[in-house]
Design a protein around this nucleic acid. Structure first.
Length: 513
RNA sequence: AGGCCCUUAGUUCAGCGGUCAGAACAGCGGACUCAUAAUCCGCCUGACGCGGGUUCGAAUCCCGCAGGGCCAACCA
């Protein structure tokens, strides 16, 4: 029985348009999902949309539409992006769905019954602009409130609180005893640092007088629950009836690691008697041409155009190749075009065409069986086993950029191997030994490309299908038995010509400032 | 206040205790022609931010310093 693998992205907030950050997280998760599926895991890949809250309510009000109408529109846009990027999610959860609300309310009721949610009254300073209560810690040294809070007034408001603080010792222990819980490791320090300070209990409600667009507290319908119990619960509510919990990986951005995913979420689950997720995979942020990605300039939204102009696969490859998981990275037109032209067009795409042409010319399109076996062939095969080993090791840590780097060493080596064999010379020879070498040369390149097309299918699914089809092989659906050197290509009929990555004229960018 | 990350060839970055420090791209020179003027070969530059320390040995660990970013909003 295949072991299951449950992976999630953070759910996007239904306010604004999808941009590079949203795209990256989906692509990374998708590549992992497809890789795991091909590795034989029973994958469940969840993504979705966070649709409640003040911002949505305000935007809807401004637009003069019902919030539900607004989020329906936004959901369509975000789902459109998933299609454009060829994301293979198994489920899409929206926090306004009944299946989600039901679980959120069950959670709240259970904690209330356990006495872990209490009603509190706080007289406090409240920032209207930030929609949050302030403490003396938030004051400037001179005692005034920082500009960002806008008008600060003293108010008394009743709200419900979750007894977060009593789970702090458990959480610290859990993080320390599960070193892979927060990946990459250096992110863990941040969280442990945060946990050195005593935590406050977590305010989990808003009175309906201030916010109506949310899920009602089951034990007090004059309140809705506020952000975390709503949003984080999606990971569980989506699979509540599927027996898939705990999640194997939550893929998230560094901004929502601490406190939400590393603190609130595990503590909530612990309080409910539910296992915490196994791992948080924390990625960094993209800049665009060294500028911070911002909504106002739209710079991060514009980058999505590369998926349209150069194909989703090229875009997916670029994102995976360029960002070291965990670190920040920069998206630039120059590096994108370089990767497209050099890595994809010249190194890989052109190599496919070299093979097709030579097999067509010398063997009527039928891939020959390897006959000669000399050092050149032995070395190439050895390099494959080294490369696939590194690929696997890097991928096991979700270091996709390193995995791809290792694979391209092999692709480059195939080009060099052809050069060393010089099949165009062998073809002119009448020597039987040369003919055997020619057989081997084309057989080896074909097999090398079959292997590359197989392992790379999760990263560039459509392209790899095309590659494999063009060398006369079926598309790759699993890795088992398909990643070691074989004679699988012998006798396959190849296509006449195949341009995987056509040269693309990119219109000069609209000048940005 | 405190904490975290980054600082390595012209550029983007990898390496994170042990062979004379690497890749890609760019640049220069050469080879080749099967190919989407593509591929291959060679060359090129670096006090691995600065100053201390630990060690037989440090880009790699520790301390201090400097510069950039983040821990506050939109936001992955």
């Amino acid at each position: 029985m295949p072991s299951s693998f449950y992976i999630t992205t953070a759910i996007d907030y239904a306010n604004g348009s999808p941009h590079l950050g949203h795209a990256y997280e989906k692509v990374l998760s998708d590549v992992i999902s497809r890789h795991m599926r091909m590795s034989g895991r029973k994958v469940h890949f969840l993504t979705g949309l966070d649709e409640h809250g003040q911002k949505v309510q305000q935007t809807a009000l401004k637009r003069g539409v019902e919030p539900q109408v607004l989020v329906d529109e936004i959901a369509a846009v975000f789902k459109g992006m998933l299609g454009d990027l060829n994301i293979s999610h198994d489920d899409y959860i929206r926090t306004t769905e009944p299946r989600h609300k039901k679980v959120v309310q069950q959670f709240l009721q259970q904690l209330f019954d356990q006495g872990l949610i209490y009603k509190g009254q706080k007289t406090d300073w409240y920032s209207t602009r930030q929609e949050q209560f302030l403490t003396d810690k938030d004051r400037d040294p001179d005692g005034s409130w920082p500009e960002i809070y806008g008008e600060v007034t003293q108010t008394t408001e009743e709200n419900y609180y979750f007894k977060l603080s009593q789970f702090q010792p458990w959480l610290v222990e859990h993080i320390k005893s599960h070193p892979d819980f927060i990946t990459p490791r250096f992110r863990q320090n941040q969280v442990l640092e945060f946990l050195k300070e005593p935590m406050n209990d977590l305010c989990i409600s808003r009175p309906k007088s201030r916010l109506t667009w949310g899920i009602e507290l089951p034990f007090d319908t004059s309140f809705v629950t506020y952000v975390w119990f709503d949003a984080l619960t999606n990971y569980y509510s989506a699979v509540a009836d599927k027996g898939l919990w705990p999640a194997d990986v939550h893929v998230i951005g560094k901004d929502i690691l601490s406190p939400p995913h590393a603190v609130y979420w595990p503590c909530m689950l612990q309080a409910l008697g539910i296992e915490p997720p196994r791992q948080l995979l924390v990625h960094g942020w993209w800049t665009v041409n060294n500028q911070k990605a911002s909504k106002s300039s739209g710079n991060a939204t514009n980058t999505l155009g590369f998926a349209a102009s150069h194909g989703a696969d090229a875009f997916r490859y670029y994102l995976c190749r360029e960002m070291v998981v965990g670190q920040d990275a920069d998206f630039s037109t120059t590096t994108f075009e370089n990767r497209y032209k050099a890595d994809l067009g010249n190194n890989l795409g052109n190599l496919v065409n070299r093979l097709l042409n030579m097999v067509g010319r010398n063997y009527a399109g039928l891939i020959p069986a390897a006959a000669a076996d000399e050092d050149l062939e032995k070395n190439l095969r050895q390099l494959w086993s080294d490369s696939i080993k590194k690929y696997g090791e890097s991928f096991a840590e979700y270091q996709v950029s390193h995995a791809l780097e290792a694979l391209w060493v092999f692709i480059s080596a195939m080009n060099a191997y052809i050069e060393a064999r010089a099949p165009w010379k062998l073809a002119k020879s009448t020597d039987a030994a040369d003919r055997a070498r020619l057989d081997s040369c084309l057989a080896h390149v074909a097999e090398g490309l079959r292997l590359v097309g197989t392992i790379l299918t999760p990263v560039m699914p459509a392209t790899c299908d095309k590659l494999l089809t063009n060398i006369g092989r079926p598309v790759a659906t699993h890795f088992d038995g398909q990643l070691s050197w074989s004679a699988a290509c012998t006798g396959s009929q190849v296509a006449e010509k195949c341009i995987l990555f056509p040269p693309i004229e990119v219109p000069t960018e609209t000048p940005s400032a």
